[in-house]
Computed example of a mutant assay.
Amino acid sequence: MSNEPTYTTFVGELRLVTAPLAQMLSATKAHLDSKQSAGQGLLIFEDATGQQTDFNFQGTLQDVLARALPAQPEAAQPEPRRSGPGRPKLGVVSREVSLLPRHWEWLEGQPSGASAALRRLIDEARKQTQAQGGISRQRMEAAGRFMTAMAGNLPQFEEASRALYAGDTAALARQIQAWPDSIQTHLLYLLEPPFAQQP
């Protein structure tokens, strides 16, 4: 997935578009204006969360975009200089962390210091998750919301849900084989990695 958040429009069981917000709105507005969507339900999902979202498509495309897109600041203001801990030039940000006394004791005993030890532990955990081909909790929940909305009445839904939340991607792929192609493809897209399927 790109760094820019994407949205997906479904018309019935057919995926119309997966794209950043402005592109998705343009494609969806063009579809609605073409009168091809008569009698078919239209659902829009925010891909990062799997939540359904609504937009007002009344008026021109410019009207739709003006309502949906955040207003651009008139002039970029320089960020105020921060004083205090952290190394902004290196991308280091200071934030508060709450730990139990035994955690602080252990951290204080690390030769490289508490901050370096925490960074190292986080990097090791991230590498381990990637090596296992694991699905992040956020992706799993987004996929679950999408799956409930689009496939809640489809065969094998319960089995597919169990496989999803167990992190068993092979079983999930087997359970959804009879589902409409667009729903299968988008569900796997929401879970990448490990599927790495682009829309």
Rank of each mutant, 00 (worst) to 15 (best):
A178H: 11
Q184R: 14
I183V: 15
A173V: 04
A178L: 15
G167D: 03
L154T: 04
L154I: 02
S161H: 10
L154V: 03
S182C: 10
Q175D: 09
S161N: 12
A170N: 12
D181S: 14
I183T: 09
A166Y: 05
G167V: 12
I176E: 03
A178E: 13
Q177W: 05
E158S: 12
A163W: 09
Q156V: 04
P155F: 05
L154S: 05
A173M: 05
A163S: 15
Y165A: 06
A160E: 07
W179L: 05
P180M: 12
A171T: 15
I176K: 00
L164T: 05
D168T: 04
A166Q: 15
D181Y: 03
L172V: 06
W179T: 10
I183F: 00
T185L: 04
Q175T: 10
R174D: 09
D168C: 02
A160S: 13
G167R: 00
T185M: 03
A166P: 01
R174K: 15
A173F: 00
Y165I: 09
Q177V: 09
G167T: 07
A166S: 13
E159C: 08
F157V: 03
L154M: 10
P155M: 06
Q156G: 07
A160N: 09
T185Q: 04
P180C: 13
A173S: 14
A160M: 08
Q184H: 03
Q177Y: 06
A173I: 00
R162I: 12
A163G: 11
Q184F: 03
L172A: 08
I183H: 00
A160C: 11
Q177C: 01
A166E: 13
A166M: 11
A178I: 14
L172I: 05
Y165R: 04
G167E: 01
A166T: 11
L154G: 05
L172P: 08
I183E: 03
E159R: 11
A178K: 13
R162H: 12
R162E: 13
R174L: 04
W179V: 07
F157D: 04
T169E: 02
L164M: 03
G167P: 02
A178G: 13
R162T: 13
S161F: 01
D181K: 07
E159V: 14
D181F: 08
A160D: 08
D181C: 07
E158R: 06
D168S: 11
A173C: 08
I176N: 07
Q177T: 15
A170W: 02
P155H: 02
F157H: 15
I176G: 03
I176Q: 02
I183D: 05
R174C: 01
D168H: 12
A160R: 06
E159I: 10
E158T: 14
T185D: 01
D168F: 05
D181G: 14
R174G: 12
Q184N: 08
A163Q: 10
S161L: 06
F157L: 00
P180L: 11
G167H: 01
R174F: 01
T169N: 08
Q177H: 12
R174W: 00
T185W: 00
Q175G: 07
P180W: 09
E159Q: 15
T185K: 02
E158D: 11
G167M: 05
L164F: 07
L154W: 02
